[in-house]
């Protein structure tokens, strides 16, 4: 565990907590893409199946369980408890356009052709693009609530911090995983435009709105 990895994990944890608290406190999930949340639940479910086969540490297991539980709790809040506030008219990104190619790629490019390994690879690839429905929704409505942009910033920062973690681990331990690195790069690149808007607008106290 190095400082980049720890900062990445904390950022990831904060993102998920911010989202749940935002929905709970405002009693509304307006502006949040349910489709991205479904993809994230699928990401955690397929990646953390090793909870049953492989124990790494109490920290590792606790975080995995928290991510899985929080992702399903978010889906429950969006599609059940606060369903009336869900902005489905603007949440129209076709997730099968992500799931189908990602499934094919996971079957073709993986470290080992075994069920758990393929599901892990699928989750890494899917995570890299899972935010697209949310970013699509923001671009469609042309704006995001400030709390939603904090959520997106924390979620995007997490994988970017992991990139530094992987650079560190490559030099310190000789450890590298090309699948995770390439997917992490793609994931971070997708956030670039948002990061720019966040830094130039939200951090200066303005609402995140896109130029018309």
């Amino acid at each position: 565990m190095n400082v980049f990895r720890l900062a990445g994990d904390i950022s990831h944890l904060l993102a998920i907590i911010v989202l749940v608290i935002k929905i709970w406190k405002t009693r509304s999930c307006a502006g949040i893409s349910g489709r991205s949340q479904i993809l994230f639940a699928l990401v955690y479910t397929t990646r953390y199946l090793d909870l049953f086969t492989n124990f790494i540490s109490a920290y590792n297991s606790a975080m995995k369980i928290f991510f899985i539980v929080a992702s399903y709790a978010t889906i429950f809040l969006m599609y059940s408890k606060f369903r009336a506030t869900y902005d489905h008219n603007h949440d129209t990104f076709r997730i099968e356009f992500l799931i189908v190619p990602v499934s094919g790629l996971a079957l073709l490019v993986n470290h080992d052709f075994t069920p758990l390994e393929i599901l892990w690879t699928f989750s890494i690839y899917l995570e890299s693009v899972a935010i697209l429905p949310q970013l699509f929704m923001v671009s469609k409505t042309g704006e995001a609530e400030t709390i939603t942009s904090h959520y997106l910033f924390a979620l995007g920062s997490y994988r970017t911090l992991y990139l530094f973690n992987w650079i560190y681990r490559y030099y310190a331990e000789g450890f590298y995983d090309l699948i995770a690195i390439i997917a992490g790069l793609v994931q971070s690149v997708l956030y670039c435009d948002f990061f720019y808007l966040y830094i130039t607008k939200v951090l200066k106290g303005k609402r995140l709105s896109l130029p018309a």
């Binding site: 990831h12 492989n54 790494i56 080992d112 758990l116 892990w120 450890f175």
Partner: peptide, 10 residues
């Protein structure tokens, strides 16, 4: 090749 046991990241 990365072994399953080396997947200590989240």
């Amino acid at each position: 090749k990365i072994k399953k046991t080396e997947k200590d990241e989240l």
